[in-house]
Amino acid sequence: MYPYLRLGPFLLQLPLLALLAGLYIGMSLVERESARLKLNPSVIGNMIFYSLLAGLVGGRLGYALEFPGLYSSNPLSLLALTPSTLSPSMGLTVGLITFVIFLQRNRLPLRPTLDALAPGLALFMVFTGLAHILSGDAYGTPTSVPWAIRLWNDYRHPSQFYETFSALMIFLVIRERFPKPEGAGLNFLLTVALSSASRVFLESFRGDSIFWPGGFREAQVIALVIMAISLYWMRKWMWLDSASEVKSLKGVNP
């Protein structure tokens, strides 16, 4: 694990650099995929940029709302460059709302737009795994398996490596010509479903899980729900496509 690199007086946060690299390369993949799907790459790029920006602002405001007295007396603190003063749930919500608004305002077709995001998202997940390898976050449970790694004063499952390997496999499935359901929007839903399935499986090797009553892991249950929703929509869009195909065939050959 190499969380920091000292360069003279500067202390570089390597996990953050890995995430930025993932974002940069992921964005270029999204733009390429947008062009392939005959969407305007710069509009899609702007959509991602504004959604991320809104997510950051929303995340900071969400955190400040938890401590209204502190931030109202010192509003300049809202501009501080500290990632640990962000509310992830609020950031995600505001980012998604911005995404939907941008989509509607620019009259972007939902399903091809989602497909354009799929390879970039899958690649970003690989870099998230690399960031975890560098930081030592998302660490595994203590174990005696022969491939255990020594981390945080114990021998543990190399959960960060499992995560990165799984994300790499998902990226290859999404990018390459593996057999998969065909239709607009399905590549994106497949990315989400596979990533959720991977989290459902791998969460049980994590040592930092939050537990709910009954001993259920929070992340596992949430991933399972996301997986079910994405599979439901995959099924719905698959049959919707075939219904419209049949209609158009009947229209041509009455």
């Binding site: 449970t141 203590p142 945080w152 004063n153 114990d154 399935a197 459902v200 499986f201 969460e203 049980s204 040592g207 930092d208 899980s209 939050i210 537990f211 709910w212 009553p213 009954g214 001993g215 259920f216 892991r217 596992q220 249950v221 399972l224 997986m227």
Partner: peptide
């Protein structure tokens, strides 16, 4: 996925992470 989630429950753990080693 549902079966694995059930199978990998840790009934004794609620709230905190598993490891509290220093």
């Amino acid at each position: 996925g549902i079966l694995w989630t059930m199978f990998s429950r840790v009934p004794s753990a609620i709230g905190a992470p598993l490891s509290v080693a220093p």
